[in-house]
Each structure stands twice: as C-alpha cells, then as structure tokens.
C-alpha cells in the first residue's frame, strides 16, 4: 500500500514537473512578468499588447520580417509615460531559442555597449538587450538625460528578471580574431538576412535554412575591407551540395577550384571541410584569401 502511495506521489511530482517544463516552453511565458511597471517615475500606461508571428506586421510593419527570419514566437509591448517627458516603448520578444535572440541582436549593431544582459547596445534613446531566449528593445521617443537613465534602469530590471542565460552559437568561435572589426559579427540562418548585410544572390544559393548556422564577419586591414562567411550544415551531404552550387552559380569560370579574382579585382575563395563551408569575399590578394581560409580550417 505504502509503495503504491509513494508511486502516486512520485507520478504527481513528475507530472507536475513535466507540466512546469511544458508551461515554460517558448511562447508560453507570461512576458509581462519580466517587465517592470514603474521606473524612475515612468509608469506603464494602458494594457500590454501581445503580438504573434501572424500579427507582428500590425505592430512593426515590414520590419516584422526580420523577426520572422529568426523564428520569433511572441512579443509583448508596454508603453511608459511620465508627465512632461518622452514616452518609452518597451518591447520584449520571446525568440524561442537563445541563438535567435542573439541573432536578432546582431542585426543592428549600432551603439555603445552598456553591460546589461548578455549583450546590450545603447544609441539615441534605443537600448537593445539579449539574454537567454529574449530580445529586449527599450525606446525613448526622445533622448534626454532623464529618459536615457530610465531606459538603462529599465533594461537592468528586465535583464535581472530573466533567469536564464543562453549559449552563443558555437560557429561564432570559428571566426579568426585578427583584423575582425568590432561589432561586425552577424549571426543568421536565412538568406534574406545575409542579403541585408551582404548581398550575395537573389536566390538562396547556399541553401540557408533553420537547420543551418551562419555567421558573417567583417575584416578591416590596410588593404581594405573583406568579409568571411561561415555556414554549418546539418550533414556533409548538405554542405557538399551548397559548396557545389556556390561553385556553379558564383564562380563557374574559376580556373582553380574554389578561388577566383572577381570583377572588382578582389578575391573570393571557398572551402569545405566536413559540414563547414567557408567563403572569403573581397580579399585583397589570392594569398590573403587562402590565408583566411587556412585560419578557419587550420
């Protein structure tokens, strides 16, 4: 009998924990609990608004496509007002996974780092933060000393109420550090985002998709700017397919496989190793292009 009771208790606890886990899955969190209602005399005004993948365009128009490209789940918006001061708009995005929150954070890298959450940038009234699977945008419609202080204080409160940290996508670590421009790393897995930062082709010639990981870094040397694009595929077959497609579409006339001087007199080079595809764009010389590839694949 006692064994049965303990068994039932165990099942109830296990069931409860399973339910808790289920409740905490992406999109199910009450995002409102992560935001304050009052900061530095700014008080929340009106009811929060919630936007899903389907309704985000009602709130942020065409730019909603960026969030969808990072598999966005839900957004909760709260407005803050203070008599005689500019309005502050707080947008908290549940991006489902930390890699998406980090990715959307890398979409706009303007601003100064202010040490909040796992990454934060402040510029002209706008504070952007990522932490765990959350991306936070706090925007004062006008920048004043008071509104800046309030936005930063609000950011700290939101970050401290997010009880999770996210892992950076491991592909980031493969970018060689030498000559890498600060604040130039873009993480994504959607060719629209690649094209926004660096136009490659109107078609998705690298077969970027949710099961790929891509990172773009900008490098600056005395000979100019060049770019390094790394893409991890789920398996070797997919990587080879993308590699061959890139060779066929982007450099069909290359005399030496995987390296070519393009029309701007710079060099593009591509290399595949297991599931990792590496492409250098606009290297100043053939040697420099090969050196970049080697730095990744050493």
């Amino acid at each position: 009998m006692k064994t049965k009771i303990w068994g039932v208790i165990f099942l109830l606890i296990a069931g409860g924990m399973a339910q808790m886990c289920k409740n905490r899955k992406a999109g199910d969190i009450d995002l409102g609990t992560l935001m304050p209602h009052e900061v530095n005399e700014w008080k929340s005004q009106g009811a929060d608004k919630i936007y899903t993948e389907e309704t985000i365009f009602d709130y942020i128009n065409g730019a909603g496509e960026i969030y969808r490209a990072y598999n966005y789940k839900k957004l909760q918006a709260r407005n803050f007002t203070r008599e005689g001061y500019p309005q502050i708009i707080a947008d908290l995005f549940d991006m489902g996974e930390a890699k998406n929150a980090f990715g959307i954070f890398t979409h706009n890298l303007e601003g100064e780092k202010v040490g909040i959450g796992q990454g934060s940038l402040y510029s002209g009234g706008l504070l952007q933060i990522w932490k765990g699977r959350y991306f936070v945008s706090l925007f004062a419609e006008e920048e004043t000393n008071e509104s800046k202080a309030a936005v930063l204080a609000m950011g700290k409160k939101v970050a401290s109420s997010i009880n999770e940290d996210g892992q950076l996508p491991s592909i980031i670590e493969l970018l060689p550090e030498e000559n890498l421009k600060k604040n130039s790393i873009r993480y994504f897995y959607n060719h629209l985002i690649l094209n926004y930062h660096f136009f490659l082709a109107d078609d998705n010639i690298l077969n970027l998709a949710e099961n790929t990981d891509a990172v773009l870094g900008t490098y600056q040397t005395e000979n100019g700017k060049h770019w390094l694009l790394l893409v991890n595929y789920p398996n070797k077959e997919n990587a080879v397919k993308a590699y061959n497609n890139f060779l066929n579409v982007y450099m069909p006339e290359a005399l030496e496989e995987g390296i070519l001087q393009t029309e701007n007199a710079k060099w593009t080079a591509v290399k595949i190793k297991q599931i990792l595809l590496t492409i250098v764009f606009d290297a100043p010389s053939k040697g420099a292009a090969k050196k970049m590839l080697f730095a990744v694949h050493k």
């Binding site: 969030y67 708009i89 009234g125 706008l126 945008s137 925007f139 419609e141 006008e142």
Partner: peptide
Amino acid sequence: TVGPHSYADK
C-alpha cells in the same frame, strides 16, 4: 529609421 518599429516622432 530607428528601432524595431523603424519609427520615432523625432
């Protein structure tokens, strides 16, 4: 253009 809304009264 600034921020997620690509808009500010400013």
